Amino acid sequence: MPHHERERFLAEPRIGVLGVTDSRGDRAPLLVPVWYHYEPGGEVVVQTGRETVKARLLGAAGRFSLCAQDENRPYRYVSVEGPITSVTDPVDPALRESMAHRYLDPEEARAYLAATADQLKDDITVHMRPQHWRTANFAAFAADFAGDGQFRTDG
Rank of each mutant, 00 (worst) to 15 (best):
R152D: 03
L95A: 10
G82P: 07
E81R: 13
G19I: 01
E107W: 02
P93D: 09
R73Y: 05
M1H: 06
L31W: 09
F9A: 07
V20Q: 01
V34N: 05
T88Q: 15
V80T: 11
A136M: 05
R27Q: 13
F9K: 09
A61T: 07
L30I: 11
F9G: 11
P2M: 04
D144A: 13
A115I: 02
V80P: 06
H37G: 10
A117Y: 02
I84K: 08
D123Q: 07
G155N: 09
P74H: 00
F145G: 14
F138W: 12
A61Q: 04
S98M: 08
Y103H: 07
P2V: 05
E97S: 15
T48P: 05
N137G: 14
A139R: 13
V78Y: 00
H132P: 00
F141A: 15
G149F: 03
Q131H: 14
R24Q: 11
W35R: 09
P29E: 06
E5K: 07
E97N: 11
N72W: 02
V126W: 00
Y112S: 10
L58N: 08
S65H: 02
A55F: 01
R110H: 09
T85V: 15
T85P: 08
V53W: 00
L95F: 04
A11Q: 12
P74S: 02
P40Y: 01
E5W: 03
V126K: 02
S79N: 07
H3A: 12
S98D: 12
L104V: 04
R134H: 11
A94R: 09
D148I: 09
F9T: 09
A61V: 10
E81H: 11
R50M: 07
P90V: 05
E51N: 03
A136P: 01
D22A: 08
G59C: 05
F151A: 14
G155H: 07
